[in-house]
Computed example of a mutant assay.
Amino acid sequence: MYRTRGAIALALMVSGADALLRFSCSQLVVERLDPLVNPGAAPSPHLHQIVGGNAFNISMDPKTPPPSLATCTTCTFADDFSNYWTAVLYFKARNGSYHRVAQKPNVGFEQATGGMTIYYTPYIGSTKSSVTAFQPGFRMLIGQQGGRTLEEAQKYRQLTYTCLKDPMTRTGETKDMPTQPCPAGIMANVRFPTCWDGKNLDSPDHTSHIAYPSSGTFESNGPCPSTHPVKIPQLFYEVIWDTTPFNDKSLWPEETGQQPFVWSQGDSTGYGSHGDYVFGWKDNALQKAMDTNCNINCPQLKSQSIAVGNKCVKQTQVKETIDGWVDHLPGAEHMERKK
């Protein structure tokens, strides 16, 4: 799997890490399914964009891990049949209609069909420590889809936005949605907690079995709390939304300081950002990568080209109009009206 020098430099700059996996996962499907929070519901309350293995479905039984069902993956590490998903971004026009915002490939992955960039980091800087890779059946969620205040968002330390001045911008992260047009789009940054209770592969809220370090962050080698003593890799999504077609301020709300972008669950503040994960690496591939401290490329793992990943797609199971101009967000009738 080829990486340009620019992409390698970018990844190292972003994380400060001497070891990490950084790879592309192209778009698998965009639809209203959420087998983690709303298993069996078709449709789920709001729209998601999903990448990874094609075993993604209405209900994903944790007793049947994705590698046993998937036949392809959109990710460039071919043994990664995990599923990664977030809400979908929409532009809201002054007349109240909505238009879905497309995803844009990241630096070094320009051939990808939308999707997102995935990072797994075993340690930061020169401080090497052992991490335990996720286990078959593991799943988790970070963020609060109904969050609409900064206080609610502060519970999740590293869910942020970057207003891209250019494709290489990696500074100026904010907790709320950018309030000025971003020349190269908006990047949503989704970093998961890095401590695990060592027992439960999931929890009723899909969050309680994981935790942030008891002090500091993963990047500062913060210690895990006694309740969650097992250090797990830093899982991190970068999703670039191509907001540039909507950068004309005459299209934006007339009120000063207001911005026009809305998450698919009806959140215009940005405080409701969230991400979902279902582990699906084949055999011990991820643990092998973490133990050998792979740095961007990982010859110990099987890889495939981005072009091959682009071909792995899934037919939508929920038939509805999500593109073009629509009068309301998909699933608007189910949304919590939270101001």
Rank of each mutant, 00 (worst) to 15 (best):
M1F: 04
R3E: 13
L12A: 12
L12W: 08
M13G: 08
A17H: 08
A17K: 07
L20T: 10
L21H: 11
S26G: 08
Q27D: 11
L28F: 07
L33W: 15
L36F: 07
P39L: 05
A41T: 12
L47V: 02
G52S: 07
P62T: 09
P65I: 13
D80Q: 07
N83S: 10
L89H: 03
Y90P: 06
G96Q: 02
Y98D: 03
F109G: 01
M116A: 08
M116E: 02
Y119I: 15
Y123C: 12
A133G: 14
A133Q: 13
Q135Y: 13
M140Q: 14
E152G: 00
Y156G: 00
R157Q: 01
Y161I: 01
M168P: 03
R170N: 12
T171L: 08
A188Q: 05
N189D: 13
T194H: 04
G198M: 01
H209F: 06
Y212V: 00
Y212M: 03
V230W: 13
Y237F: 15
S250N: 14
S250K: 12
L251T: 09
G272W: 00
S273W: 00
H274Y: 02
G275P: 01
D276K: 00
Q287Y: 12
C298Y: 06
C298G: 11
Q304I: 13
S305C: 05
K314T: 14
Q315H: 08
Q317E: 15
D327L: 14
H328V: 07
P330F: 06
A332N: 15
K339T: 10
